[in-house]
Amino acid sequence: MLHLMSILLLLWKLKKSKSCVGISCRMQECYAIVFCLRYLDLFYQFISVYNTAMKVVFISSTFYLIFLMRFQPPVSATYDRTADSFPYEQYLLGPAAVLGFISAEEWSIPEIFWTASIWLESVSILPQLILLQQLREVENLTAEFVATMGAYRFFYILNWIYRYFAEGYVNWIGWLGGIVQTGLYVDFFYYYAMSKWYGQKLVLP
């Protein structure tokens, strides 16, 4: 739900301000790749109506966000491709593919794709965090969006602890990816929490 909320917050922000200054389209592209790799099972496996609905919403809303930022004026006119230039194709995609291949529990296409998607998701926030560090001052809605985008994985960790004890659930790759993903946010969270506590604008060091 937090993940969904972060997407809705971002959509709302783009629609309301008609500007995507401070938002990394490259992060959304990483997530689009993550979702496409992971949700292949939509074609051959049914888990629940909730599960299917969320997958469809995540994929379609993320592609819509990319479309808005890259191609749909007036939002696309505010997209700064020079600032948002983190080369994830080199730094994230390659390593995620290699890690996905060597750490997959089974050498099947869906399993390798799933594993690669977990590793890629764990670092997908990097283009966004690096963009914010260049700008330093973060708009309120952008701060909420990034905070919810980080918080959802933290809540997965709580759920994993519960599931481990309640049903003996084990998911080593998911756990490791989740810890890396949450760890990358800790620094941002600190400055976000401080800005909320003191009721000031979020300014990154």
């Binding site: 993940h3 992971r38 099972d41 496996q45 888990i47 599960n51 969320m54 997958k55 995540f58 529990e105 089974e106 099947s108 869906p110 399993e111 799933w114 997965y156 998911n171 998911g174």
Partner: peptide
């Protein structure tokens, strides 16, 4: 034993 590779999380 066959590993179960159903991923029920998002």
């Amino acid at each position: 034993e066959e590993a179960d590779h159903t991923h029920d999380e998002l």
